Amino acid sequence: MRPPWIRTFHRAAAPARRLLCFPYAGGSASYYFPLSAALSPAVQVLGVQYPGRQDRAAEPAIEDLGVLADEIAGAAAADAEGAGPDSGRPRPRPVLFGHSMGALLAFETARRLEEKYAAPPAGLIVSGMVPPGRRPALRLGTEDETTEDEIVEEFRLLRGIDPALLADPELRALILPALRSDWRAVASYTPDPHAVLSCPITVLTGQDDALVDPDAAADWAALTTAGFSLRTFPGGHFYLDGFPPEVTAAVKAATFLA
């Protein structure tokens, strides 16, 4: 069985490329189900399931990106040691793909795979986030200054959700615990200013994303000694919702170029 951190949605061919996907703040592994359906069987899409949501709702959330990255890197390293689907060959190194908070977490996981496990990923795809060390354009204060209502409102603006939905007590009760914990993790994140990866980095972003300044998005190039590319799509922070064909094609191209 796979570690509880990693979810698989569709069967993959042998040997398939592997894409390990990291959700946004408040999100879950199932966000990447449409991408898996579109890329299978050529790419095996794996979703990281953070504690404190969906089938891991009973587990306490982890409010530290470093601790999360430690756990996920260990799970990914163990997963990579297994045999590929329908073959006796080792699994190929994955490409890591993260959106928003997931982009920072994918970067930190890539660092650990390279530095601790001597198993750098084949590539890194980051979406909807400025590089470590640059503050995203949030309208929120520090962790201690931010109220739950402000976090929900920021999420609503980025996500384009009807305010009436988030006013529903039951829906808020489902969304808020994971969102609050993830916000604390992002607010307390302190990156290593000297960290650089040896794998290529691909940046994807929405042209109307209020969270990401275009110039800041280009600064991801300084965090790799390998190739770099940047592509912008129509839409806001959640331009990739449902994974439209052009977004899916870009992710597939980055996965096969890595």
Rank of each mutant, 00 (worst) to 15 (best):
R2S: 06
P3N: 02
P3D: 05
W5N: 11
F9N: 05
F9C: 09
F9G: 08
A12G: 15
A13L: 08
A13T: 07
A13M: 06
A13C: 14
A14Y: 12
P15K: 07
R18N: 14
L19V: 00
C21S: 15
P23I: 08
P23M: 13
Y31N: 07
Y32M: 04
F33G: 07
L35N: 01
A38I: 07
L39F: 01
P41H: 12
A42S: 15
V43K: 06
V45F: 01
L46W: 03
G47I: 07
Q49N: 10
R53C: 13
R53H: 11
Q54I: 14
A57H: 07
E59A: 11
A61E: 11
I62F: 04
E63C: 12
D64Y: 09
D70G: 08
D70Q: 10
D70W: 08
G74N: 15
A76K: 13
A77G: 14
D79E: 11
A83L: 09
G84T: 13
P90N: 14
V95E: 01
V95H: 02
L96W: 07
H99T: 10
S100L: 00
G102P: 02
A103D: 09
L105Q: 06
L105W: 08
F107S: 00
A110T: 03
R111G: 13
E114P: 02
E115D: 15
Y117E: 10
Y117S: 12
Y117D: 12
A119C: 11
P120L: 02
P120R: 01
P121G: 05
A122L: 15
A122V: 14
G123W: 06
L124D: 03
I125D: 06
G128P: 06
P132H: 09
P132K: 12
G133I: 00
R134A: 11
R135I: 04
L138Y: 10
R139C: 02
R139F: 05
G141S: 11
T142H: 12
T142R: 12
D144Y: 06
T146P: 00
E148Q: 08
E150C: 07
E150H: 05
E150W: 03
I151E: 06
L158D: 01
L158F: 03
G160E: 08
G160A: 04
A164N: 15
A164W: 11
L166H: 11
E170R: 14
L171W: 13
A173S: 15
A173I: 09
I175W: 02
I175L: 14
P177C: 14
L179P: 06
R180F: 10
S181K: 10
W183I: 04
A187C: 03
S188C: 09
P191H: 04
P193T: 05
P193E: 00
H194P: 00
A195D: 13
L197Q: 06
C199N: 04
C199T: 02
P200T: 01
V203E: 00
G206C: 09
Q207D: 15
D208S: 14
D208R: 15
D213N: 08
A217K: 05
A218E: 08
A218F: 01
W220S: 07
W220A: 05
W220F: 12
T225I: 03
T225N: 01
T225L: 01
P234L: 03
L240C: 01
F243E: 03
P245K: 09
P245W: 11
V247T: 07
V247S: 04
V247K: 03
A254I: 03
F256E: 09
F256P: 12
A258L: 13
A258Q: 10
